[in-house]
Design a protein around this nucleic acid. Sequence first.
DNA 1: CACATGTATTAACTCATTTAATACGGACGG
DNA 2: CCGTCCGTATTAAATGAGTTAATACATGTG
Lengths: 126, 126
Amino acid sequence: MFQLDLRDSRPLYEQVKEKMKMLMMRGILKSEEKIPSVRELAHQLTINPNTIQRAYKDLEMEGYIYAVKGKGNFVTPIKEAVSEKKCEQLITALKQLVQELMYAGIKEKQLVTIIDKIYAQPQKGE
Amino acid sequence: MFQLDLRDSRPLYEQVKEKMKMLMMRGILKSEEKIPSVRELAHQLTINPNTIQRAYKDLEMEGYIYAVKGKGNFVTPIKEAVSEKKCEQLITALKQLVQELMYAGIKEKQLVTIIDKIYAQPQKGE
DNA sequence: CACATGTATTAACTCATTTAATACGGACGG
DNA sequence: CCGTCCGTATTAAATGAGTTAATACATGTG
């Protein structure tokens, strides 16, 4: 499904979160689709199930997935997906980042071009 | 000069980096201006000088400041400030973030509005 | 020379991260 | 009903990043 980078200094559960979000954003994991079980993904990545559980717990709190005991974890339908709180955090992070980009001498036009390209991609995963 | 947030889960040196960058971006610390010495800032914030040193070392590597032994640390003039490598990292972070914002249902127009506001502020600190 | 600066080193402590070993309860197919 | 897969919780231990502390050295300034 994906690989972890052991040279990456970030915690493993953060990497797992990022990769799972990536798969959802790319539409590879679709709405209501079942994602690998805690034990299965742990086995695939050769890391401890508790670490996967930690990542899944975070993703559920942020609204990306939901868990059903005895069945598995599933992708939250897009419309209701990301929590309000998480959205605000993303906006705050954007403002901080854009200020740094401006200070670094990057032109606004350049940023808008980058954003255009991303938004030009069709929204998948419905 | 500024305060640290002990409830913040991030490392102290990361917070110091963020605050110092903020002061430079806001033009409160200007080009070629001397910033507080390692020992002085450590005393002000009631934290260890080594932690400040760590933050300053990072800021120097990223191009925001430069150090002169026996004299102090100074703000790098804007034009040469942020290193090429740091710029690329910022761009990469932006792409990642915008993808998440799109998935979260935020409209492109909304993002552009936010960016416009930031770039509308005059570039200070020259 | 006295003093402030940046820088380096070593040791110890705290705490987040990760692993490990179990355990419990719900869902499902045979 | 039973075995197996699922999510979830708990406790203990090991590892490593972050932080403090004490100290030392080199350089610039008055």
